[in-house]
Design a protein around this nucleic acid. Structure first.
Lengths: 333, 333
DNA sequence: TTGAAAGCGTTACCAC
DNA sequence: GTGGTAACGCTTTCAA
């Protein structure tokens, strides 16, 4: 492997000091325009690539922001990540990404790995963390942003929305269209904390309206998706007609249930209403379109990026942002 | 914030040199067991935290592998990434992820950013790169893996499959079931290089069988997904019946077309066959299931991880792995 | 407007 | 078994 091209090499080629090269490459106005141009051209010609490791070492700023997501294979989390990483790239920050696979233990291990890289902030999805995780970040005095959830007692900043409020809207809509016997389809374990919150919020919203207890249908361990929704609906068959509405933990699950209903010859929404969560593409493309909650995954990413910029600039004010939700009524209810 | 605790501080507290501390913390056997224990205890007591940045700087080994993907919001790329990152975490490597949004210029910018972090290898999706990108990595002597494609002239290693072979299978299947008038739905621009290859391969496969020319239907700029498939099908309306099969660039697009056909009262597969690509979850959950090509996104990730392990271990052999494809016949053809 | 010197925390190398 | 020295590539600081 050829030796790395350094600022010193560029400096020698141009006939200046490496200090001037350093300044020129950062577009420092104190370097004369002519010299700057010459240095930048030479740097390009020599194939010079800036060494962020050395910079991070010297300035004691890593240029990293650590982000944990439950899963990358989820259009909403992916969208939040996309918005976030594009905004951070503009600030010259690199994102270190880790996926927890919806497991708290995995989050702890991940945070440990990520902290070894000296991130300047940590963004986590959801407000539930192990004690060890909390201790780790507190010992460092690291800035933390919880996203998607709005925890009662966040570690630092929070950008998210209220699941209770969203499910309340959904149940209100179903009741207003005459549905009373509700079922909820979601994961069996509590690993998907946000899914469990959606379930509990739906149960509470139904209870407060005097509806019969919500039946909880178990689609398997988290994460659950299209195939799990289809599988449980096919397993239940026409017993689904004991209910007049099935609330699903997410749009993919709802789509699975909807597809199974077609195979089972169950008329949606005539015999059964189906609702989802998340405003995924499948929900507004399929026929009939699925009634759902739009959670503005994009905005979450944008708002988190704003807070990160403030943190990196040294601002210490605490932020708590509710991005809100929106009920989208489709053809399944 | 208090000044950072360094190896030197630990060394002074214990009464040894910082060199011995360095060795002891790495559990080097040449340090006596007693000294090692004393150093490790003291380090913990003082709240010493190892500085990965300094290590990366000194050893010139970042512990990073850079990965570029066209998009993170694609179940297949996400799955490849997941398999890859889990395998690399076991090797103690961190992945630096960047998304090109299907743009070659963006790839170049991204590679420049990623190289600044001194990755020990670079994994890129697809075999098409700008000259500048090629120069950048060659100047560094950096190990490169192209994935998904199997380029004729790869920069280094390659893990992928043949699009031509896959589309050949698909066209053969359609012909064997009596279809002759084919259309292809994909992106209008060439930005999605792999999508364009699928299109061209389908055209070639049809031509070699003496079928009439394949009509190319433009679903908009890349990336195209469910909503674009639905939109173009709805725009065309019953003119779709000029064809007897629509090959779609991906399963999401095929699902969009299928959903639109339901709204248009077009019988699939009676009046029209629809096929996709990629074996996405939506393809095997929807009703009827979509005929598609399974591309083993997971295996690509696993194989890339194997090669990365070899590269990091210093192996220099060139690898080229064809993970193959599989025709999955559903109810849409 | 430019340069020289020092040092960020770690580890490779060589001595003892 | 342990330690001294130098160096990784950059930027802060001070001087010219």
């Amino acid at each position: 492997m050829a030796a790395r091209v350094t600022m010193r090499d560029v400096a020698e080629a141009v006939g200046v000091s490496s200090m001037t090269v350093s300044r020129a490459l950062r577009d420092d106005e104190t370097v004369s325009a002519k010299t700057r141009a010459r240095i930048q051209d030479t740097a390009r010609d020599l194939g010079y690539v800036y060494d962020t490791t050395a910079q991070a070492f010297r300035t004691q700023k890593s240029g990293f922001v650590a982000v944990t997501l439950p899963s990358i294979n989820n259009a909403n989390f992916a969208e939040t990540y996309r918005a976030l990483s594009e905004a951070m790239a503009e600030s010259g920050m690199q994102i270190l990404l880790g996926a927890t696979n919806y497991r708290l233990e995995k989050e702890e291990e991940l945070v440990r790995q990520l902290l070894a890289r000296n991130p300047q902030a940590l963004v986590m999805t959801g407000g539930h963390h192990s004690d060890a995780t909390r201790d780790l970040v507190r010992a460092r005095g690291l800035s933390v942003i919880d996203m998607w959830d709005l925890p009662v007692d966040p570690l630092g900043h929070a950008v998210g929305f209220s699941y209770a409020e969203a499910m309340e809207k959904m149940v209100a809509h179903l009741v207003s269209t005459g549905r009373r016997k509700l079922a909820f389809v979601g994961a069996s374990d509590g690993a998907d904390q946000r899914g469990a919150t959606r379930r509990d919020s739906a149960i509470a919203a139904a209870a407060s309206r005097g509806l019969p207890p919500v039946a909880v249908l178990d689609a398997g361990p988290a994460p659950v998706s299209m195939r799990h929704g289809a599988a449980i609906a096919e397993r239940m068959g026409r017993e689904l007609l004991n209910f007049d509405a099935v609330l699903c933990v997410s749009d993919p699950v709802a789509f699975g249930v909807l597809s199974a209903c077609r195979r089972l010859d169950i008329d949606v929404p005539g015999q059964l209403a189906i609702t989802g969560f998340g405003h995924f593409e499948v929900a507004y493309t399929c026929e009939p379109r699925i009634t759902t909650i739009d959670v503005s995954a994009h905005n979450i990413g944008v708002e988190v990026a704003h807070i990160l910029d403030a943190i990196i600039a040294g601002d210490s004010e605490r932020h708590r942002i509710d991005v809100g939700t929106r009920l989208v009524v489709g053809g399944t209810s």
